[in-house]
Design a protein around this nucleic acid. Structure first.
Length: 504
RNA sequence: GUCCCCAUCGUCCAGAGGCCCAGGACGUGGCCCUUUCAAGGCCAAAACGCGGGUUCGAAUCCCGCUGGGGACGCCA
């Protein structure tokens, strides 16, 4: 039975790099009928916050990466928060101490820092010198009695090779020569990372540890700890990291990097997971499929095809442009009601919707055909249809693009004829076309020479969604009840009159 | 500095010795569609880091170089 885990430390927002690690674990578990465990690594009391933890859980759920066992849902191997497992770590630490596999170290942080600096300066690997290795039990007990607060270090065997089969990289070997004795338990009694992960992964019966490549050099220490503790090590797989366009680690200065930021900007979760899955991996096309067919796949299909052996070895650059394209694809495919619900908050932020009432949501949904598929993110949708909510004839004639349209031959004639051609609310395409036909009859203009002036007169813009959609959208909005929750919208007839008055 | 990992179009991937004068996607350029702006369709340009081997044959295997990344914490 396969068991995998995602083990974030709650010290900030869920980053897309970590989200990708979470995703790969999830894909593997779901593709193999395995169990996906979420564990919170909050042993760093100073930096961990419950707010971060809540945010990470929320973001993972938003992405659709539900876990089978975790801090909030429980499970047979709990608790799933390291801060609640402290007794386990000290018990195993004592076991190691008793067996002589660990020892107390009394070196001060300042002394260690000085040693590190000296070794680095001397061109040697800055590893712990082993100063306290020889302190015997009696002396240690004595000094602790005196009030000294030692750490507990793991006694790493000298000069042996530690080899493991990495599921993505193949055989990897480290010699313990370059590994200093790691701290297992800090002077405040809390466990250090390398110790806590091993105890937890072993006790939680994790079979596959899939994590970022930044952990690969921790692996030999951890394998040694598994041995010392008498546990069978799991299989390891190290994922290459995600970089910014300049090949430096992805960070704030590259723009949005956290899952919640992408959500805030109107990226759909399925677009983000699909995109992330394709950094360092790609589904194989099979059975008559072309490579193009497997670019966009739902997350369950991704899971069905996912294979660690086919995960790439090199770092990938995060490309916001491709994410944007993918989001466009998913926006186009999304169910209208859902898209409306997801987009409403952006209309509210813009002041176009005052209250997310049922009527307002229905109206937003009716606007979607003009925008979804034309823009990259949900947050751009209100801007795309802003002409519906904002109309100022005087301000728009000042715009160079609008002025250009008015200067086209016969344009003012069309604008002047428009108010008289509008018989009443144009609630559908045919009503609009009938009005346009009347203008055509009176002015003799057609095609671009007819529609372009009509566009500027009714929308105040030189460009935008097709008028067959835009004009009915305006008049349906104008017909909304004042308490519908939507900001007041001027009707096409009012617009035509106001525009003719200033454009004449 | 030492150790570890990595190396195909600008970017993400395909390629697991002959099917490759290298395929797909994003982006870019052009054309088309068009009642405007987007979107969409079609076409195009664009890569095996370098040097040695191995082999009848190498993008694919080996070695070196170069370049990139990671680790070396009482952070995780």
């Amino acid at each position: 039975m396969m068991r995998v885990r995602f083990a974030p430390s709650p010290t900030g927002q869920l980053h897309v790099g970590n989200a990708r690690t979470a995703l790969f674990n999830w894909l593997l578990a779901r593709g193999h009928d395995g169990t996906y465990v979420l564990r919170i690594e909050d042993t760093d009391a100073a930096r961990s916050t419950r707010a971060s933890e809540d945010g990470i859980l929320r973001d993972l759920r938003w992405l659709g990466l539900e876990w089978d066992e975790g801090p909030d849902v429980g499970g047979p191997c709990g608790p799933y928060r390291q801060s609640e497992r402290l007794h386990l770590y000290s018990s195993y630490a004592n076991e190691l101490l008793g067996a002589g596999q660990a020892y107390y170290c009394f070196c001060s942080p300042q002394k260690l820092e000085a040693e590190r600096a000296a070794m680095l300066a001397a061109g040697r690997p800055p590893r712990y010198a082993g100063t306290c290795r020889a302190i015997d039990r009696a002396e240690a007990a004595d000094r602790i009695e005196q009030g000294e607060k030692p750490v507990i270090r793991f006694r790493v065997p000298e000069r042996i090779d530690v080899t493991f089969q990495d599921l993505v990289r193949g055989e990897v070997t480290f010699n313990t020569e370059v590994i200093g004795d790691p701290v297992l338990v800090r002077s405040d009694g809390r466990p250090a990372y390398n110790f806590a992960v091993v105890v937890d992964d072993a006790l939680m019966e994790i079979t596959h540890v899939i994590r970022g490549e930044d952990h690969i050099s921790n692996t030999p220490r951890q394998i040694l700890l598994y041995r010392a503790l008498g546990f069978a090590p799991p299989r390891f797989a190290h994922l290459s990291l995600v970089m910014g366009p300049d090949h430096t680690p992805l960070s704030k200065r590259h723009g949005a990097t956290s899952v919640s930021e992408f959500r805030a900007h109107g990226i759909l979760p399925e677009a983000l997971t699909n995109y992330l899955a394709l950094i360092g991996w790609s589904p194989r096309a099979a059975g008559g499929e072309t490579p193009e067919d497997v670019e966009l796949l739902p997350i369950d299909e991704l899971a069905r095809r996912f294979a660690l052996e086919h995960v790439g070895h090199s770092a990938g650059v995060f490309d916001p442009e491709k994410l944007a394209w993918m989001n466009r694809q998913y926006m186009r495919r999304a169910a209208p009601a859902r898209l409306a619900a997801e987009t409403a908050r952006f209309f509210v932020a813009r002041g176009f919707v005052r209250r997310s009432s049922e009527a307002a949501l229905a109206y937003v949904e009716s606007l979607l055909p003009m925008a979804a598929g034309s823009v990259d993110r949900l947050e751009e949708i209100p801007e795309r249809v802003a002409f519906v909510f904002q109309f100022d004839a005087r301000a728009s004639v000042e715009k160079p693009a609008v002025a250009d349209v008015l200067n086209e031959p016969g344009a003012r004639e069309v604008v002047a004829a428009l108010p008289g051609a509008i018989a009443g609310p144009m609630l559908d395409r045919d009503a609009f076309r009938a009005a346009a036909a009347r203008v055509r009859e009176r002015t003799g203009r057609k095609g671009r020479a007819l529609f372009h002036p009509i566009r500027v007169a009714l929308t105040g813009e030189a460009g935008g969604p097709e008028l067959d959609l835009a004009v009915p959208a305006i008049d349906r909005g104008a017909a909304l009840a004042p308490d519908a929750g939507v900001a007041p919208i001027a009707s096409a007839a009012e617009r035509a009159r106001a525009f003719a008055a200033v454009a004449g």
